[in-house]
């Protein structure tokens, strides 16, 4: 149909003609008016993210991540220090932006892997497995409702 027929209020997609119809009842239909003051206030959510560094002896280490930038590497100056020859001095960077964590390779020798894929940069999601050299880390993210 190229021109709008003023008498036709309902159009059939398949091209078959439809009866003209005005739904007079529609205008009189209303929804229940809601009082804005009665709407629930903002729901406070707490985001907790942490690394679980997997150790061969089973004594895994937990590191809470917070929201500041962190450099991960073999240098003792790194925010997250990993004592392994397979890890570069400054191996990766973790940033927090728009409520998301990103991990980025810092031109490391052995590369950065997320879930087995060699990556340059990646937004992290719950249960992602990160490999930095031979060190394996699980990323965990929990959102909990604050008690009011």
């Amino acid at each position: 149909m190229n021109e709008k027929d003023e008498n036709t209020k309902i159009w059939a997609v398949n091209g078959s003609a439809t009866e003209s119809q005005e739904n007079e009842d529609f205008a009189s239909t209303t929804t229940v008016e809601m009082d804005r003051d009665r709407l629930p206030g903002e729901i406070p959510i707490t985001l907790r993210a942490y690394f679980e560094i997997l150790r061969s002896d089973g004594k895994n280490e937990i590191i809470d991540l917070g929201d500041r930038e962190r450099v991960i590497g073999r240098s003792p100056r790194c925010d997250i220090y990993l004592s392994s020859e397979s890890v570069s001095r400054q191996h990766a960077r973790l940033t927090f932006r728009s409520e998301e964590y990103f991990i980025e390779d810092l031109n490391s020798t052995n590369g950065l892997y997320v879930n087995g894929i060699k990556i340059e940069k990646c937004v992290l999601r719950n249960n992602d497995q990160i490999e930095i050299g031979r060190v394996k880390i699980l990323f965990h993210e929990e959102k909990t409702l604050q008690k009011r």
Binding site: N115, G116, I117, K118, I119, E120, K121, C122, V123
Partner: peptide
Amino acid sequence: MVVFWAREGLTLS
């Protein structure tokens, strides 16, 4: 061959 699901927010080199 390395096979993976393309994922939003992922950068490869």
